[in-house]
Design a protein around this nucleic acid. Structure first.
Lengths: 332, 332
DNA sequence: AAGAAATGTGAAAAGGTTTTCACATAATGT
DNA sequence: ACATTATGTGAAAACCTTTTCACATTTCTT
């Protein structure tokens, strides 16, 4: 692989001049520039980013830490981050942690070795000590969709509380009074925020919160299926269901259909996430859409601002979800 | 950030000795080793991979080029590649090309600049000149799920022909004689292979190929929906449908249901891919499963063998898909 | 015409590591 | 006791850039 030295020889000039034309810095005679460009072309010279990074103390690389790219939510995150990183001339290291704090630690270490210019962190709840440590080192950092207690960190997330509130509000506006809920795991912050939104929306409308109409699942299809089964077994009447995510909503729908209950005629349903399949099932799922890709674009932009500009005071960006009305809700 | 020099001073020894203990190379007195390790710990020293890469001419990094991580197929690819790369001590650069040859070129260039140790290529069909160029440069390379004409390149893909053949074979074994087909875009190799499998399976069973029962879609939900509509409008009787992918199969099912046609009672359906949602729709979709993650694991392993071992003769690995029987097929 | 400013050039240092080499000491073989 | 061998150490070169600095030449002011 040719080096800048080879180019200099071939163009009959010095290394310095080659560097100058390549970086458009300083003065260089037009003829020399031409010769250099020609040499670059002929030798197919492609500068060594390792050497460049070493001396400039900059790698034009960022790390993206997330639990699992197979989860469509994080695939969107990756897409959004990669898109804007590329447009700024950065590459992104993909780091799946699988939820393991060990892998996370390992990655944090090697990302530092590779001298990434910044990190976008969208992984475990518990990693907050790690986060604090990173912050101490001064590594540019943006935390995505995670509640982080320590202040002074750029953060962008979605208002889950508000989204749930909107869902319930919509159901109430359709005339529903008995609205069941299937929530997510209690140790996931977004899940509890959605539950709070549900509860407070009911209260705001002067409706009673019936604990028998509240079940919990694991955010997976089976959780919704089973939750719906339990609601049915409970014998308490309800005319609507708000599910804390779409997967469980779909599970619930299938459980209802099995029981001969019609959606939306007998029961109205609102999900959360707007996964791609929400509009492919029959009936199409009414749900709360999260602007994931916007979120990750903004996260990447915040990070790159941190990297390229001087550090400003840290920011918290909160995006509003959106109600997508489709076919699983009906007036009562 | 502390350097090896700082560690040497702190441990009262030379740079060379520090390097030796860090790399477990050469002789070093036990006490010195202890002092060095202590210094590393105290200073939180983390070696600069850029400098290391520069001198060793090795980055412990690979590039993964694919069209779009949002496509679950490629999300699986990414996951498989990243997993095995990590286990070998490598990082992966995520490169979405969005199908654009320009972005692809851009990425190829910057990956070379960053001196990646190898590339896994799972993007456009047309990139074969690029591929040849890479090959010429001697960059370790594995091509994933793409038919590449130029020889002497490690390749791993799935036998789409065989998968389609299995699907049709299964339908025939259930007694179906009039089997419709919705294919993918004709300029995608895997799509034409699936079509060939369909055709030759019919012939092998002595069944006529009725061109009126063959429609084409875009591999998306809408394509299947419309294809099914056209089949219905065609007035030719058929008792089964093989769809070249699951998304279109789901579109077709929904179109059939809309028309009051029952699946599987009136029409049996087999898809292709086994996307996560295949088992969540009602009725659960019978389909041909691709061992995507196996494929990408193997690809990564081939690449790392190329990188770490001396280059052996190039290999082509072909994986067999699997028929997953669920609820959309019925004996006739 | 002379001094000042603008333009242009190359040598050398710096960035942080690994590796080679020369040398020094300790252990072993005869 | 002396020659080998094994063990241990540090200086310096190498990897490929960018950037600074000193110097040389041209162009512009007055």
């Amino acid at each position: 692989m040719p080096t800048i030295n080879d180019v200099a020889k071939h163009a009959q000039t010095s290394i310095s001049s080659v560097s100058r034309v390549l970086n458009n810095s300083g003065y260089v005679r037009e003829e020399v520039r031409r010769r250099v460009l020609k040499a670059v072309e002929e030798l197919q010279y492609n500068p060594n980013a390792l050497a460049r990074g070493l001396i400039k103390n900059k790698s034009n690389t960022i790390g993206l830490i997330l639990p699992d790219i197979l989860n469509p939510f994080f695939a969107h995150v990756a897409r959004g981050v990669e898109d804007t990183a590329r447009s700024y001339g950065y590459n992104v290291f993909l780091c799946n942690t699988d939820g393991s704090i060990e892998i996370e630690n390992q990655y944090l270490k090697v990302l530092e070795q590779k001298r990434v210019d910044g990190i976008i962190y969208a992984a475990s709840q518990r990693g907050s000590q790690l986060i604090a440590k990173l912050k101490d080192k001064g590594t540019p950092l943006v935390v995505l969709d995670r509640q982080i207690e320590c202040v002074d960190i750029d953060t962008v997330h979605i208002n889950n509380y508000q989204g749930a509130y909107m869902a319930v509000n919509y159901l109430v506006s359709l005339g529903h009074r008995k609205i069941a809920f299937i929530g997510g795991p209690k140790d996931i912050q977004s899940a509890v925020n959605r539950e709070n939104g549900y509860r407070e929306a009911l209260q705001a409308h002067g409706l009673v919160i019936d604990e028998d109409l509240i079940k919990y699942g694991d955010f997976r299809y089976e959780g919704g299926y089973e939750g719906a089964g339990m609601l049915l077994a409970g014998k308490k009447a309800f005319s609507a269901l708000f599910s804390a995510n779409d997967m469980m909503a779909i599970g619930a729908i299938n459980r209802f259909v099995e029981a001969g209950i019609k959606v939306p005629d007998d029961i109205s349903i609102v999900g959360f996430d707007d996964i791609p399949f929400a509009k492919l099932i029959v009936p199409q799922l009414t749900t709360i859409a999260q602007p994931i890709q916007d979120m990750s674009r903004i996260a990447a932009e915040l990070l790159l601002e941190q990297i390229e500009g001087e550090k400003k005071s840290s920011r918290e960006v909160i995006l509003l979800p959106k109600l997508v009305k489709r076919k699983t809700c009906k007036e009562v």
